[in-house]
Structure formats: C-alpha cells, structure tokens
C-alpha cells in the first residue's frame, strides 16, 4: 500500500508539471484528489488493512493528500499570477491622450487676493468692516482732514453725482470714520475692503473702478513701530518669509507721520527689472499714524488714543504677483484671463 501511495504521489506531481491553465488544473484535482481518485481508493480500502498497517498507511495517505493539495494551491497561484501578467500586458493605455473635459468654477482673481488679505489680517486680530460706496463728501474728504479746497483733494480725482455733496468714494477711508463712530470707545482693528472709484482715464495702469483694502488700528499707545511690525509681518506672509520691506516718508492727509511701504522686488530679488522699473523695490501700500483730526472725527480723543491706518490695492497686488500687464483685464472678465487663476 505504501509503495502504491508513493507511486500515486509521483504520478500526480509529474502530471502537475505539465499543467499551465486553470481548466487542466481542475481536471488534475479531480483525477488525483477527487472522490474517484486512486488516493481516495486507498482511504476507502483502509478498513481492510491490519491493525498494525492501518495507522502507518493512514498517516502516509494523509501526508500525500496534504502534499498534493499544497501543490494544487501553489499551482493555482502560479496560474493566477500568470493570468494577471498577461492581462496587464494587454491593457496598456496611451496615457498621453487628454483627460475628460470637466468645467470647474473659479473665484475672480480679486476675490482670491482679497481672501488672502482677509486671512492674514484676521490672524492678527483685524476683522472685516464694510461700508457704502456712494458716499458723502464729508465722509470721503472733510472727516479725513481734507476740508474744502484742501490741496490734498487733488490727489483723488472724484466722480460727483447729481446730488449735491454725494460722490462715489475715492477710497475706502470713509469706512474708518464709520467704524470709529460705531465702535467708540472700544479699541479697533479692522480692515475695510471694497470698490472705489476715480475719475481717471482707463489705461493699462489705471482704472476708474478698483478695489481697495484699508486697515485701521486704534487703541492706547499704538506706535509707528507697531505699524512697521504689523505691515512687515503682512508682507512676509503675502510674498515671502524673507522679503525685505522699506518704509518711505510720504504724505496722506489722514495720517501723520505717513509712510509708503515698498517690498524688495520678488521678480528680480532687488537687482532691477522691468516689473520694478529698475528700482529693485515695489510699492505695496500707503500707511501712517492716524491724524489727530481723523481720530477726532471718529470721536476718539487724540491725546488718549493713537492708531495707524494703511491702504492697498488688491488688483495691483494681483498684477505684481502674477505679472499682469494690463489692469483692464480685471473687469473685462474674459474667460481666458479668469481661468488662469
């Protein structure tokens, strides 16, 4: 019996070597381990064996069965591997064909830049404060230390409406007064975004309508040093962690001292290029300590409170960041422009 078992095993393994496909493998299993196989015959004949022989043969028969089953499993996995290999080889795509067309929406570039500004200032405690676009002359000028015929009124070419004393705001600064009147005597940290209007010929560099973001901080002992720190932090967040800033004395009627902040040109790293007009610096924003008359107009006593204010143009920042040569792109809304953001 034992010899017979060995022969069964040898035959089975020899047959297995020739097998390469799934069907033959199933036939093999039926032939060598199925109910009608020679191996099963041995199990069926066990009863006829002597008491001594029975455990020996039984043990060996089980071993053979296990060996064959193991061999079956191995073959099975070999065949599967082979099949997978074949199928992988037959399914090679041209990965360079274009992907399927999807249209997806985007925010207008101005909105995107505004959001970046909101986010940076929000982290410094500045909240958004919005106010109206069609304003009174008083809020746009007089309360901002620009009485009638003040020379500084020349800096803003104004659209006048057919209602006396009503204009389109030339900057978001009227919001400073609105915010102060609303919040007095609380400390203030706000940014004031929105659309502004100037009587200017539309060209690649200037628009009659543009967005602006101003900022205002009012409180106790707020200094020019704080202004520099806050705005330099902003520049480092918006442009580059290492960007250098420069504060230049300037003039705005509603601040004193006043400063313009330049950042080192990020296109040429300050070497001079067409973007920075060979100066190595880019003008980013105007700023200054809030003028005593402006604090007064907002209800804050300039001997008790101090503060700083600043203003910048999101379109200009977007133009610098993305090297846009023509500001008219913003309101023209050509999809070929908008889809680049």
């Amino acid at each position: 019996m034992l010899e017979k078992l060995e022969q069964i095993k040898l035959d089975a393994l020899a047959a297995m070597d020739k097998i390469t496909d799934q069907e033959s493998l199933l036939v093999w299993r039926a032939t060598y381990t199925g109910k009608k196989s020679a191996l099963m015959d041995i199990f069926n004949q066990m009863r006829e064996l002597s008491k001594e022989e029975r455990p020996l043969v039984g043990k060996r028969a089980n071993e053979v069965r296990q060996d064959l089953e193991k061999r079956y499993e191995e073959k099975q996995s070999e065949i599967k591997k082979e099949l997978l290999k074949e199928s992988l080889q037959s399914e090679i795509l041209d990965v360079t064909l274009p992907g399927r067309n999807l249209s997806h929406g985007r925010l207008h570039p101005t909105t995107q830049t505004l959001r970046r500004i909101y986010k940076i200032f929000a982290e410094m405690g500045f909240q958004v404060y919005r106010s109206r676009e069609v304003e009174t002359d008083d809020f746009n000028f007089t309360h901002l230390n620009m009485p009638q015929h003040h020379p500084a009124r020349d800096m803003w070419d104004t659209f006048y409406t057919n209602t006396e004393g009503v204009i389109l705001r030339t900057h978001t600064s009227p919001g400073q007064i609105h915010a102060m009147k609303e919040y007095f005597p609380e400390p203030i940290r706000v940014i004031l975004p929105g659309m502004c209007y100037r009587y200017e010929q539309v060209s690649t560099r200037s628009e009659m309508q543009f967005t602006q973001v101003e900022g205002l901080a009012v409180g106790h002992d707020i200094t020019f040093g704080d202004l520099k720190g806050t705005l330099s932090d902003f520049a480092r967040r918006l442009f580059d962690a290492d960007v250098r800033t420069r504060f230049r004395a300037s003039h705005f009627p509603f601040t004193e001292p006043s400063a313009e902040m330049d950042v080192e040109c990020f296109v040429c790293n300050g070497d001079g290029c067409s973007v920075c007009k060979q100066t190595g610096w880019l003008e980013i924003l105007g700023s200054g300590m809030v003028h005593p008359n402006v604090l007064r107009a907002g209800g804050y006593d300039p001997e008790v409170y101090s503060g700083f204010a600043f203003g910048m143009g999101p379109e200009r920042l977007t133009m610098l960041l993305h090297r846009i040569g023509d500001i008219r792109n913003f309101w023209r809304n050509d999809m070929r422009f908008l889809e680049q953001f």
Binding site: G219, D221, I222, G225, D226, K228, F247
Partner: peptide, 13 residues
C-alpha cells in the same frame, strides 16, 4: 529705517 518693528501691545479688540 531706524525705528524698530514692534507688535501692538494694546488689548485685542
């Protein structure tokens, strides 16, 4: 240039 950059010490509104 000689005025140092500082951060506001006043209370957060």
């Amino acid at each position: 240039d000689n005025i140092p950059e500082t951060r506001m010490a006043d209370v957060l509104p």
